[in-house]
């Protein structure tokens, strides 16, 4: 049986980290424990329907609020492979890159996507396609410092590689 095509969860602006992962679950550190509560105060349909490969699309100021890395961890562990937004709150952006959850700033794509639209993604190339509308979008390349972290699969791996290189 063919896998269903990855789909988009489309939300509005100011999707803050309290909505992505409420603080009442921050005693937990394991990704799978966090995933059980991802988005539960925002969208009751998220957890029952999310599948690996799906993408969250938000408008301005995605990930605002707390510095909790638990928020991108919960999204990643629930199966979300990327977040596309018109803009990101800066700590969320850093945290997502640091744990290997790609985040793409693409206002034109955000305007094009509706809730449930099928999506195809090429993260390496930064290419996003809305299969419903047929439109394709190209994200700006990351600065070198951020690309180094992504290529190393996270900041801690990069630090370890640098330490080995320095002997």
């Amino acid at each position: 049986m063919a896998q269903p095509q990855p789909k988009v969860y489309r939300y509005g602006r100011d999707i803050n980290t309290d909505l992505i992962l409420p603080a009442r679950y921050m005693m937990f550190n394991e990704p799978e424990d966090l995933a059980k509560h991802c988005m539960e105060d925002l969208d009751g349909d998220f957890l029952p329907t999310v599948r690996y490969g799906d993408v969250v699309v938000g408008e301005e100021n995605f990930g605002s609020g707390s510095s909790r890395e638990h928020a991108p961890m919960a999204l990643k562990a629930s199966g979300i492979v990327a977040v596309i937004a018109s803009s990101f709150a800066r700590i969320f952006f850093r945290n997502a890159i640091n744990i290997g959850l790609p985040v793409l700033e693409l206002p034109e794509a955000v305007a094009d996507f509706r809730h449930g639209d099928p999506i195809s993604l090429d993260i390496e190339e930064g290419i996003v396609k809305n299969t419903r509308s047929g439109n394709t979008f190209q994200a700006k390349p990351y600065p070198k410092e951020i690309m180094d972290i992504i290529r190393a699969d996270g900041l801690m791996n990069l630090i370890k590689q640098q330490r080995i290189a320095q002997g």
């Binding site: 707390s66 510095s67 700590i91 850093r94 945290n95 900041l155 630090i159």
Partner: peptide, 30 residues
Amino acid sequence: GADSHSCTYGGVNTFATGIGSTDLAAAWTT
């Protein structure tokens, strides 16, 4: 500071900003 309200310390003329837990691990290490 690994807490978003670490920006508070700017009240006493510091450059202070919030980071997450991986950044904290990296900053403690290096």
